[in-house]
Design a protein around this nucleic acid. Sequence first.
DNA 1: GCCGTTTTCGGCCCGACTGTTTTCAGTCG
Length: 579
Amino acid sequence: MSNLRIAEIFEKMADILEVQDANPFRVRAYRRAARTIEGLGREAAGIAAEGALSELSGIGEDLASKINEFLATGKISAYEGLKKRVKPVLLDMMDIPGIGPKTAKLLSDKLKVKSLDDLEKKAKTHKIAGLPGLKEKTEENILKGLRFLKKDSGRMPIDTAFTAAAGIIAGLKRHPEVIDISPAGSLRRMKETVRDVDILVTSKNGGKVIEAFTGLPEIASVSARGETKSSVVTKDNVRVDLRVVPPESYGAALMYFTGSKEHNIAMREMARKKGLKINEYGVFRKRGNRKIAGKSEDEIYSLFKMPYVEPELRENTGEIDAALRGRLPRLLSVDDIRGDFHIHTKASDGVLSISEIAALAKKRGYEYALISDHSASLKIAGGLGEKRMLRQIETVRRFNARYTGIEILIGSEVDILDNGDMDYSDEILKKLDFVIAAIHSGFKQTKEKLTSRIIKAMHNRYVNTIAHPSGRLIGQRDAYDLDYEKIFAAAKKTKTALEINACPERLDLTDINARRAREAGVKLGIATDTHTKHQMDNMIYGVSVARRGWCGKKDVLNCLGLKELKRFVQEKRNGKNID
DNA sequence: GCCGTTTTCGGCCCGACTGTTTTCAGTCG
């Protein structure tokens, strides 16, 4: 997807300009443009074709022409030029926490640092202390920062952050000086990966709370510690930032600390134009500095005549404008989910029995749960041949006859073969309640080939969703290249839903593609891809992707009750709308 | 580099903490 590449280049250009001590607002313009492009609901090429690039927020004539140049040539000459004028090690050094453009440049100019390894050597041999403004403490911090970079490239999966936050919140909740406590930052916005865990506390005695926080047993080291703010690293190498504010500032602080940065900047700019100022303590009139709001987020948004903006939407990708016009979507919640669409039993590569699955699903208040073991050709995962599949169908039917309170649907995660055919005959497929189709082979094929395999599968009247459509594994395997415009069009036409796989390593579709799918009128199915007991709890992460994709109940297939769901399946089987 | 019911030029979000300083620059979120 070229959007990501363009964003990456703008981000790099900002880094280089920063090292060159360019106008900081110019640097910010590049960063802001990068975020705009990254969060775009569609391919920049489409917008460029309409000549509408410069209508995007933060993109003017100059950046629009740079994007056009990239779309035409695959390069931006200004970037190529900038790259030549700066040593790569400078940019590497800026990845180290605590080192910004100024320090990086100083180290490069005065010490001729050649690489991060070289930097480590120079810090260890005390070559850094003695440079203007730097002493032993800076050397220690550089070494600490380098160790942090080596251990972990930075971002962790959402569930790791969730667990770390839960532990710390549990540890502080009962402290007598803690009044409110909440996760904030990208964790509260439920981004798919998180760099550090942010936690907000209200208290009348910040010092005591910070003292308790830095003394928690799971903390390995403390990197900053003040009266209202502290940063630590846990024994699991998770960075945690804690911030303490007085109770009357809870809303303002929660908004500030939740971000995103871009959302906050946009809100603050709006405030400034009205003669107001927003900071983490409240909203103030500039004249006289009188506080007029801040206790709750609701109070702040309504001051600007906006409804409450859900944290998942706060990315400055149109939510402020939508809120001002009263056009924010009503997002689905995890309580709206009526069933889980993707569960493996021990018949293939899961560990649960049918009755265990039924009990777990019932406990969650579901009306239905779909058993979806692998089909024959996925031998490595114990895929079921047609005979075993027929037996499993019978087993589930018998199970339902004697079990009450939930319906177990029988389905399958059927392989899409190389030619786009399904791995089971229609004779088998028609006996199933619901069919998931998935690609498990040929990830390196061309965009055209992979796209056409999926589209052909969608045209099978028994196929109801496409599982983990892009095949990505976060941090391990890139998404394969698909023509999403074509996929969305085919999904809509054939009444096939696209899965949001809720497994934290997958989260596939992504939030951005979920939003594009929704805008294209495509239904989504949120599914946990459960193999073991606790994985049914991952539903929250899939729902969060849908929320970040602006989805409401009506966009999500498993918000339907059982009857409506069966009707949806039957409509496709009747085949009126498929070529 | 962007942007405009205060402006086409002159602004551009705002504050905390650290390490090095005796009043602040750099970095971060």
